[in-house]
Design a protein around this nucleic acid. Structure first.
Length: 604
RNA sequence: GCCGAAGUAGUUCAGUGGCAGAACGCUUCCUUGGUAAGGAAGAGGUCGAGAGUCCGAUUCUCUCCUUCGGCUCCA
């Protein structure tokens, strides 16, 4: 185990020890290490707020200063149960470990006996009356607490968390901490978090007039401002051009559907509570579509008769709405709507599933090779879990599930994708391959997804006639290269820190006349650029030059073309890129060549 | 939905049980400029919403709403 892991794990114990001092009746949950730190879950006997964090930290420092050790101790099952008889969560863990035949559970770690010293200012002594703090764990500690730097950890926040991650269980109080080997690393971490507060997509979206949220319109219902809509539209056009080249056919389907459609697809059963529903004036129950698949399935039924009609690739920038629970909402990343999906359904037979899947990956590679959204994207193969708590979610033929999962796994491995596995992460209708990304705060999110559907076609009675004139249900690949356009814009803003590439900038070049006498030439230059399909605007000289340049820089306009006496005489502009980059003097023809070339590559 | 935090001008934030503040932005006027803020005046507020305590509440109490950090969920 790495040293930092030992430090974080040891700190989790010290946190639990400190919590027992301020709340001796607290029941202990689990306290694992996580990226950058650790947490510990408690059922507390009284309400706490963030003001206790400082007190807990100081109790932890006291413990570190006592230079405690971690002494392993083995207990028999019965002894362990007796020992933790007042700790129901620990008892549950012990019973579970015993049930699954594990023996390692018997490893019990004990902190060394501590003596009350003058330095020990802990007022509540009840813990010490029973001796020392004992916790159940697998081990992996520092030898002595002095190895932990007093200034390299910090308790950060309090949050609720369900016992064993299950909503049906009671909610415990989780206390989070961050910890590093040195103060320098901690400071760097805190600095990064501060930077993230400036460059997260909500702040950038507001500053750059990309989108807004209005309380009157409602939660999770962002409004796209002209610049945001411009970006969205550019992305939609780009995908349409690519997809049509890859053999996709565009369709468009209504934003509503009758209840019967979602009963047939199974969505009403699985997601009924998260769909917007209403009764039309004639009393029919109607849903706003939460996804476009069932609509596309209807088109399949109309267009496909035989295996010769496959594969059928339907595509649509389909706008959907979903009732997300209020606590799940987050900027553009998690909204109720509009969610404009870069949606497509590929209907294919089993023989050609692998080929089609490979073809989809090729399109992914083409897009993400061109658009640099992040160096840190990776794929997650999401498989069903036929033994876990949600096993009933994965319906249908288990053998077919395994076959489908294996087909896409083979392709993914063959394509040498950067791959992780997510057991139990499959959708209700099949295994999937998700493209994962971190948001600016470092939290993992799904950017887009390719899903195999082996359940719904059968349920909805979709079929084609094979070579033997036999009815067979197709397999559907649901895929969204961009995910949803809105969410993609969120990630893209964070990834570029708002420095959008030229092709996504509503204003590509701002012509900046130094004074009133240069305005006419500035207007002429702008007109010439516009005629070449370069989006140019003129900055009116009604403020000082310095001030205008500052504000245009804040707006993150890609290029400023300054025109004064010198440029007017030379028939040129002085070009300035973002972040004070002086690019020198450009004659008009050369400027147009440069900008057009950059627009075409679409690279950021 | 649950646990925690926050909500004062368009924005960033001060502040107070007794007339609501600053900076920037905005409007108007002066200034006509060489790459990160030229000057002056003015407009702008249900202090998130509602209820309660008080002679008096933006301030204290309660409820709700919204946003943020987590948990759960994510077709």
């Amino acid at each position: 185990m790495e040293n930092i892991e030992k430090i974080r794990h040891s700190l989790a114990h010290l946190l639990a020890k400190a919590v027992l001092i301020i709340d001796p009746k607290a029941q202990l949950g689990v306290g694992p290490t996580i990226e950058s730190g650790f947490y510990y879950d408690f059922r507390l006997s009284k309400k706490i707020d963030e003001s206790v964090l400082a007190k807990l930290e100081s109790l932890m420092r006291d413990a570190i200063n006592q230079n405690l050790g971690f002494k392993p101790k083995r207990l028999k099952l019965a002894e362990a149960k007796k020992f933790f008889k007042n700790q129901p969560f620990k008892l549950e863990l012990i019973n579970d470990l015993a049930k699954y035949g594990t023996t390692s559970w018997q490893e019990i770690q004990t902190s060394a006996k501590t003596k009350k010293t003058k330095k020990n200012k802990i007022s509540d002594a009840s813990l010490y009356q029973t001796g020392d703090f004992v916790d159940l764990c697998r081990g992996g500690h520092v030898k002595k607490t002095k190895e932990i730097r007093l200034d390299a950890f910090k308790l950060t926040k309090i949050a609720g968390a369900y016992w064993r991650g299950d909503e049906k269980n009671q909610m415990l109080t989780r206390i989070y901490g961050v910890a590093f080997e040195t103060k320098k690393e901690l400071d760097e971490y805190l600095e990064r978090q501060k930077t993230a507060e400036i460059y997260n997509h909500r702040v950038l979206g507001d500053q750059l007039d990309i989108f807004m949220i209005s309380e009157k319109v409602g939660s999770g219902l962002p409004l796209f401002l002209p610049r945001g809509e411009f970006i969205k539209n550019q992305l939609i056009n780009l995908m349409r051009e690519k997809e049509e080249r890859y053999g996709y056919q565009y369709v468009s389907t209504p934003v509503l559907a009758e209840s019967a459609l979602y009963e047939a697809s199974g969505h009403k059963k699985y997601f009924g509570n998260e769909m917007y529903r209403f009764n039309d004036p004639e009393g029919n129950e109607v849903f706003i579509k939460p996804m476009s698949c069932p609509h596309h399935h209807m088109i399949y039924q109309r267009l496909v008769k035989s295996y010769r009609d496959l594969p059928l690739r339907l595509a649509e920038p389909g706008t959907v709405y979903r009732f997300e629970r209020s606590g799940a909402l987050y900027g553009l990343m998690r909204v109720r709507g509009p969610i404009t999906q870069n949606d497509s359904h590929i209907y294919v037979d089993r023989e050609r599933l692998a080929d089609e899947f490979r073809n989809v990956l090729k399109l992914f590679n083409e897009f993400y090779g061109q658009i640099k959204i992040s160096d840190k994207c990776w794929y997650r193969l999401s498989l069903p879990d036929f033994k876990g708590k949600n096993k009933e979610k994965f319906g249908g033929d288990e053998k077919l599930w395994r076959w489908a999962a294996n087909e896409i796994k083979k392709v993914a491995v063959g394509e040498k994708l950067n791959l992780t596995i997510g057991i139990g992460e499959a959708s209700f209708y099949g295994p999937k391959l998700d493209l994962q990304i971190r948001n600016i705060f470092g939290k993992e999110e799904t950017l887009s997804t390719i899903q195999i559907d082996i359940v719904v076609p059968k349920r909805m009675g979709l079929f084609y006639l094979d070579k033997n004139n036999k009815k067979v249900e197709p397999i559907v690949i649901h895929r969204a290269v961009i995910g949803s356009y809105e969410r993609f814009i969120g990630f893209f803003l964070e990834s570029t820190r708002g420095d959008l590439p030229l092709w996504l900038s509503e204003t590509q070049i701002m012509i900046v006349p130094i004074g009133e006498k240069h305005l006419n030439r500035a207007k002429k230059v702008a007109a010439e650029l516009l005629a070449k399909n370069i989006r140019a605007k003129v900055s009116l000289p009604n403020e000082s030059l310095n001030k205008r340049i500052l504000f245009l820089e804040k707006e993150k306009i890609p290029y400023l073309a300054i025109i004064g006496d010198r440029e007017e005489a030379n028939g040129s502009v002085a070009l300035r890129g973002r972040h004070r980059k002086d690019l020198g003097e450009f004659k008009l023809g050369r400027l147009i060549d440069k900008v057009k070339k950059e627009i075409l590559t679409k690279m950021n």
